[in-house]
């Protein structure tokens, strides 16, 4: 025969039920506040097969997406073509291996570091990912420019 439930235990269960309800309701409210769909224009795009980018700076997506895709011996990363000075669009110069901003003359290396001019910070790198199909997916919403952090995933993808 089962023990009859004691008054003390019953109260604990009762309070526990209330606490669980309150906690659950709070959690549900927080969950409610996390949107599942967004109306933001997507900052992600598929840049095509990662392996097809030759070593060097590719301007393939420069016009359409405002990014340069840079392949090194080790892997691949994407630079956002927006000068950190006043936001103009720099251009790529192969013979000088650098990006130069036409507005105020800032120069950036292929790493994105400032070589000359008024820009205060290195160029931003976008989040990159080589998906299962081998395509390179670039997300311009997540940016990084600190040396050390920018050289690792998710701002650098091995190819």
């Amino acid at each position: 025969m089962a023990e009859p439930i004691k008054r003390k235990d019953f109260l604990w269960i009762g309070w526990g039920a209330l606490a669980t309800f309150v906690g659950g309701a709070t959690a549900a409210s927080v969950r409610f506040l996390v949107p599942n769909v967004l109306y933001e224009p997507s900052q992600k795009f598929n840049a095509g097969p990662a392996k097809e980018f030759p070593v060097g700076v590719s301007t393939l997506w420069f016009k359409k997406q405002r990014v340069w895709i840079i392949r090194t011996e080790k892997g691949i990363y994407a630079l956002w073509a927006r000068c950190t000075h006043l936001g103009c669009t720099p251009n790529w110069f192969l013979d000088q291996t650098r990006f130069k901003c036409p507005c105020h003359g800032s120069n950036f290396s292929t790493d994105g570091d400032v070589i000359a001019g008024p820009a205060p910070k290195p160029l931003w790198r976008c989040q990159v990912e080589v998906v299962a199909s081998g395509d390179l997916v670039i997300d311009k919403a997540t940016l990084e420019n600190r040396p050390g952090i920018r050289d690792k995933a998710p701002y650098f993808a091995e190819v």
């Binding site: 927080v30 996390v34 949107p35 967004l38 109306y39 933001e40 900052q43 919403a141």
Partner: peptide
């Protein structure tokens, strides 16, 4: 994200 309801102020 929860505070903004998105990834940027929108």
């Amino acid at each position: 994200f929860v505070l903004l309801g998105g990834t940027t102020v929108g």
